[in-house]
């Protein structure tokens, strides 16, 4: 079998915020009844976190679960662990109406690292990034310039962005452009 590679193979841009493509990240789209006990169990067993509430994300190490819509979650696991996680989910949810699909190779993940990481998102998305309005533990699906994207904060200085793989280069160029030295706004400094 051929070697799996991510869209931009870990490209890095060092601006006033560091933009990095995260390489291969295992991702599973899980749809079903989020209020069911089996769903809670499936998320716990596959990702080791509690089922996130509305617009929340639960991260634990290199695993996590994000609330995408009232009937959809995005599970994140190491790339090599996707098949195992899928098997765990399918076993835990057997008998329920659900959908679990490996979407790892259909997405690209970026990381913004730096004191001004909030600024980069604020430049590109119609979202209030004021500290207090958006904090770690929250996820927001929105529009980033002309594409759909979702982002969350790993910690106060780190933001991760996920988008479709087909627009990975566009997304990277957007983030790169927004992080170019000289473009500091000091909005949240």
């Amino acid at each position: 079998m051929s070697n799996a590679i991510s869209a931009l193979q870990g490209a890095v841009y060092q601006g006033y915020v560091e933009v990095r493509e995260m390489g291969l990240v295992g991702m599973i789209t899980l749809r079903g009844d989020l209020s069911s006990a089996k769903m809670k169990k499936a998320v716990k067993e596959a990702c080791g976190v509690d089922l996130p509430g509305q617009r929340e994300i639960a991260v634990s190490g290199d695993k996590g679960a994000a609330w995408m819509s009232p009937d959809e979650l995005l599970l994140m696991v190491p790339y090599e662990g996707v098949a195992d996680a899928l098997a765990v989910v399918e076993k835990a949810l057997s008998g329920e109406h659900f959908l679990a699909v490996n979407v790892s190779d259909a997405r690209a993940v970026f990381q913004l690292k730096g004191k001004a990481a909030r600024e980069i998102i604020a430049k590109l998305c119609p979202v209030d990034m004021t500290p207090g309005a958006f904090e770690p533990g929250m996820i927001r699906r929105t529009r980033m310039a002309q594409i759909a994207a979702a982002f969350w904060m790993q910690d106060a200085d780190t933001i991760r962005v996920v988008c479709f793989r087909s627009v990975a280069e566009y997304a990277f160029n957007l983030l790169k452009d927004a992080a170019e030295p000289g473009g500091e706004t000091g909005l949240f400094a």
Partner: peptide
Amino acid sequence: PYCGVKGEETE
């Protein structure tokens, strides 16, 4: 009304 996001028109 489904995800509770208050967003502007372009979203």
